[in-house]
Design a protein around this nucleic acid. Structure first.
Lengths: 201, 201, 201, 201
DNA sequence: CATGAATGAGGCTTCATTCAT
DNA sequence: AATGAATGAAGCCTCATTCAT
C-alpha cells in the first residue's frame, strides 16, 4: 500500500509522500517541517515543490492517495463476503489490519486529517465519505434484507462505528504495551457489540 | 460551566480561557495567534502572560479546568441513577448535553487535545482518564451485577464508546444542517446499540 | 557611602539606588529588569518612576551620586598627604579600599558605565573627569615640584593609571579565589611600578 | 585581518561577522538589532541564522576568530625581538597598531566582551588568556634573565598593562580630536612608564 | 529535473512604562 | 505617595517558499 503503485506516479513523488507520513505521524502536521520531510525522503527541500504545490498539498495528497488505496483494498476483501454480518465484521477486521500494517499512516489519516478537516474549507474529503459509505451501505443492505433493525439510522451508525474504530486505533498506536491491546480481540469485541446492537432481536 | 466559577480565579483568567476556547475551536491551536486570543478577551497581548506562562499553558489550563467541571457535572447527574443501563444512557446523554451547550469547548477538548496528545505525552491527561473511568466503572458494575456480558473487556469498551461519542460530537459540531442530526435521537440510537451489545442476551 | 547621606534625599530614593547597584552589578544593566530592582528595593515597580524618570536615569544617578561620594572621600583622605608620591600612592590605596568595601558599586561604575559612556550621547560624565583630574593634578604637581619626569603627559598617564586600577578591580571582583589577589599587595605593586615610572631617574 | 582570510570560511560568514563588529561597536551589543547587522551585511535577517545559532553566538565568534588572528599577528611580530624590553615595547606597539587599524573591532573586543564577561562566565575566554599570557611570559622571561625586578608579580602586572592598553585604546577610539592622542606617543609613554617600573634600578 | 542557500513575513514573548485605584 | 495590573511596542528567531545555478 505504500510504494507499491507502479502507476505513472514518479518514484520521488512516493518517496516524499511516504516520508511525510512518517514525519507527520511522529510530530504532527504543524510541527513537521518541510526540511524534515525532505531529509527523510532524501531529496532537497526545493525538490518537494516540484511535486507538491505546498505543505498543505502534501497532506491532502496523503489523504487522497492512501485513502484511495485503502478503500480499494477493503472493497476487494469485502467481495468475498455476502451477508451483512460477515461483511461488517470483515470491514472491522480490515480496518485494524491496515492500522497494524501502517500505523504511521493510520496516525496521519485519523488524527491529522480530523484536525484539518474543518480548516481546509475548500477541500471536500470525498474519500472519507467513500470509506464511510462502505459501512453505511452494509447497514442499509442489512436493513433491506431484514437482518438489521430498521429503526437505526445508518448515517448515525456509520459515524458511531467509525469513531469506535478511530479511537481504538489511535489508542492502540499510542499504547506502549500493545499486548494489552490484542487487535484480534479488539476486532472480536467490537464486532460483538455492534452486531448485537444491529441485528434484530 | 464557562464563567460560572465563583472561586478565587480572577475574572481575567477566565476571560482569557474562554476567549481561547472560542478562538482555538474556530482556527485550531496552531493557527490560533496569541493576539487573536487577546483581542477576543479584550486584553493586551502581554496581559495573557500575566496569567499563563505560555501559549501551550493555556491549552493545558483549558483541559484541566473545563474537563474538571465537566466531570463533576456528569458525576452529579449520575448520582440520580443506580442501575447500570440507566447510568450508561445518562452518561451518553450528559455527554451530548454538554456538547450542545458548549460546542466550542467540545471542539477543543476533543480535536485539539487529541491532536496535542503526542506532545503532551509527558503531561499525562489525568482528567481524560477520570472521564473514561466513569464509563469503565459503569461497565464493570454492570458485569458484577450480572446485567452485562462478562466476556467484554471494559477497557476496550470504554474507548469504543468514547470514540463513538467523540466522533458524533465532532460531526454534529461541523454539521451545517444540524436538524439532520438531532442530538436526542443520537443519544437514543447510541444507547440502543451499546446497551444491546452489552446486556446479556 | 551607601545609605549614609542624611541629606534631603528621601530614604526610598536611596533604597532604589542601592538595589539597582546590586542588581546591575549582578546581571548587567541591560539584563536587569526594573521589576528586579523594585523587588530588591521592596517597592512597587511603579514607585521607581516617582523617583526616576527612566531606567537609564537610575544608572546616571548611580554614577552622579556614588561617584560624588567617592570623590569627596578620596579627596578628604588626600588632605593628609602633601608630597606627590605619597598622594599618588594614597590615591591608589583609596581606590582599592572602596572597591573592597563596595564591590558591587565598583562593578557598576567601572563596567556598566564604561559601556554606557558612548551611547548616552547627551550625557557628560563630569564626575568621571573630576575623579581623573585628581590623578592628573597629582602628576602635574609632581612635575612642577620637579619630582616627576617632565616628559610624561599627565593626560595619558591619568588614563593609564585609571585603566590599571579599573582592570585590576574588575579582576579582583570577578576572581573567585581572592587570596591570590591580595589587595594590599596590589596597591603596593601598582604604586611601585607607576612611581618608578614617574619619578625622575 | 577582517576580510582577508582565504580559508574555507564562507564569504557570507565573514560579511556577517564584519557587519556585526561595525554595528556592535557603534551601538553596543544589547542595542544592536539582528536586523541592523543583517542590513549592514546586506543579507536577510534569516540568513544570519544559517551561519550563527543565535545573536550571542555572533559575539562569541567575533571573539574567537578575531582574537585568534590578533594573537597570531602579535606573536609573529614578536619573533623579531628577543630581549624582554624590546619585546614588551613591541607588544604595546602592536596593540595600538591594531587598535588604529581596526578601531571598531577593538571597541567590541574591549568594551562589549568585558561587559559580557559576566554571562560568559561559563564560556571561558581562552583567547583572552592567550593574549594576556604573552605579556606574562615576557615579564617572566625578563625576571629570569635578571633584567626585570623579581619582586613584581607577573600576574598582577599583566592585568595592569592590559588595563592601561585597554583604557587608552577606548579613550583614543572615543576621542573626537585624536590629534591630542597621537598613538605613537602613547606607545612611547606607556613603554617608558612600564619599563622604568619593571627594570631593575 | 535537482539543489540548497537565501529570503522575509510573522509569531511568541519580554519588559519599560503608565495609570486607575 | 504608593501600588501593581495592564499595556503594547519591538526583538529574536523559525520556517515555508523561491530561485539562481
Amino acid at each position: 500500500m505504500t510504494n507499491s503503485n507502479k502507476t505513472s506516479r514518479s518514484n520521488k513523488h512516493n518517496r516524499i509522500i511516504d516520508a511525510a507520513v512518517d514525519v507527520i505521524a511522529e510530530k504532527g502536521y504543524h510541527l513537521s517541517r518541510i526540511s524534515d520531510i525532505a531529509k527523510r525522503a532524501q531529496v532537497a527541500d526545493g525538490t518537494i515543490y516540484l511535486y507538491f504545490k505546498s505543505k498543505e498539498a502534501i497532506l491532502l495528497a496523503i489523504f487522497e492517495e492512501k485513502m484511495g488505496l485503502l478503500i480499494s483494498e477493503v472493497n476487494a476483501a469485502l467481495l468475498e463476503e455476502s451477508d451483512p454480518c460477515s461483511r461488517l465484521k470483515e470491514f472491522i477486521r480490515q480496518h485494524f489490519i491496515h492500522v497494524e500494517a501502517y500505523p504511521a499512516l493510520a496516525r496521519v489519516l485519523q488524527v491529522e486529517l480530523r484536525q484539518s478537516r474543518q480548516f481546509i474549507r475548500e477541500y471536500r474529503p470525498e474519500k472519507l465519505w467513500d470509506y464511510l459509505r462502505i459501512v453505511g451501505d452494509i447497514i442499509q443492505q442489512g436493513q433491506q434484507e431484514g437482518v438489521f433493525r430498521a429503526d437505526l439510522d445508518p448515517f448515525i451508525l456509520q459515524w458511531s462505528l467509525f469513531g469506535t474504530l478511530d479511537e481504538l486505533s489511535v489508542q492502540w498506536i499510542l499504547s506502549k504495551k500493545r499486548e494489552r491491546f490484542n487487535l484480534e480481540q479488539v476486532v472480536h469485541q467490537v464486532s460483538a457489540v455492534f452486531l448485537s446492537g444491529l441485528v434484530k432481536p
